[in-house]
Design a protein around this nucleic acid. Structure first.
Lengths: 208, 208
DNA sequence: AAAATCAAACTGTACGGTTCAGTTTGATCA
DNA sequence: TGATCAAACTGAACCGTACAGTTTGATTTT
């Protein structure tokens, strides 16, 4: 069942080339010939590793989804100290910054765009992404908030609503300035805008 | 420059058929033959009204974008009374409900999906949508909040951040349960979830 | 007012031209 | 000897056009 190291390498070459092209042009506009050319590989080889174009896309996206989530950066905020209220404020700020930085990467935006486009054709992929990335991120944030509540720094009833209240405003930037304007490079909100959001957010978690 | 009533009607037939198919299958997967069949019109006629498939898509989406925004419902909250704090709370709740109801319509979700998919090919369309719908909605909300602030019911510094804080959490539902799962019918959040969000939001606008 | 005439819009079919995914072939490399 | 390569090929899908004939509705003629 396992592949030889050489085969692994070939497969990786193909996947990488396909990934770049799928993310840049989308599924329909990507030509198999372009993939083989970029991978420096013959067409026959591609078809000896993948049954077809769709299977190749599935492999590329599946791998990307897992890689993006295993990326350690976005969610290590829960390992930061949380002893003073200032820690909490800094933690949220850092969390917001890393979420924005991650989401606003051109590759990440492209991935979301492809998934939204193709999830009609491949419902499985949409579901995989949904349940892997955003749902887990929401859960992590929920956990962090509950930890802060135990410490007495946050007061809320509905943890899910509180988590959405945190991510939501960030998403507005991603949608408007990242996904909706693919021609110009994504303009991420500056630190002041993020701070304003976090400050407002903290008020919603204050006592009474 | 104006078209005869008969021509208007034909054009409308074509547009309607094209709209249904583009929203259902997207641009690439929609066949011109399918459009002519559904419109009950010959191919020649389509090409006498439109230079090609792309022009047809542009017309369909442009019309949809304007229609969705001119839809009176989403934003008449600013005409509701705003004299007591209770008015404000009710106003926000109503606003949230109508925003969710509008966005969660299958047609609206499909429109967003098509725009996100095709905005690489047609940057103009993405920009038209962005500047017409979400940007104006944000501005309306901002105006409403500032009105509430003048009445003393809301306290905030950054009006833009406050507006995003309101729409953001709603968007999380649209994204996760509307856009990411096109196979099953969209599950809109129930009134309790929306109330929880509004309640939390009101805290972020409270004094100090 | 009924009949004849006419231009423009429309239809249906057929098909040219192109693009592309996937296959076959025969040579080359390791 | 088995994997890989380049290149040519196949077959199907699909956009857009050409064309010969029909419908429509208005205008003119009797």
């Amino acid at each position: 069942m396992s592949l030889s190291p050489r085969a692994q390498a070939k497969r990786e070459q193909i996947r990488t080339a396909a990934q770049q092209l799928f993310l840049q042009h989308g599924f329909a506009e990507t030509r198999m010939d372009a993939i083989t050319a970029r991978a420096g590989v013959s067409k026959q080889t591609v078809y000896s590793y993948y049954a077809g174009k769709e299977e190749l896309l599935a492999d590329v996206l599946t791998q990307l989804i897992h890689r993006f989530f295993e990326d350690p950066s976005p969610l290590k905020a829960d390992h930061a100290p949380l002893e003073t209220y200032d820690d909490f404020q800094k933690g949220l700020n850092h969390l917001a910054e890393t979420i924005i930085t991650t989401l606003m990467q051109p590759d990440y935006l492209a991935l979301i765009r492809v998934i939204l486009s193709e999830s009609i054709r491949f419902p499985k992929l949409g579901e995989l992404f949904r349940s892997t990335v955003p749902v887990r991120v929401l859960k992590k944030i929920t956990a962090y908030l509950q930890q802060a509540r135990r410490q007495g720094w946050a007061h809320f009833e509905d943890a899910d609503a509180a988590a959405r209240m945190f991510v939501g405003p960030l998403l507005t930037h991603v949608l408007l300035d990242g996904l909706m304007t693919p021609d110009r490079p994504p303009r991420r909100p500056d630190s002041q805008q993020i701070e304003a959001i976090v400050r407002l957010y903290l008020k919603s978690l204050s006592e009474r």
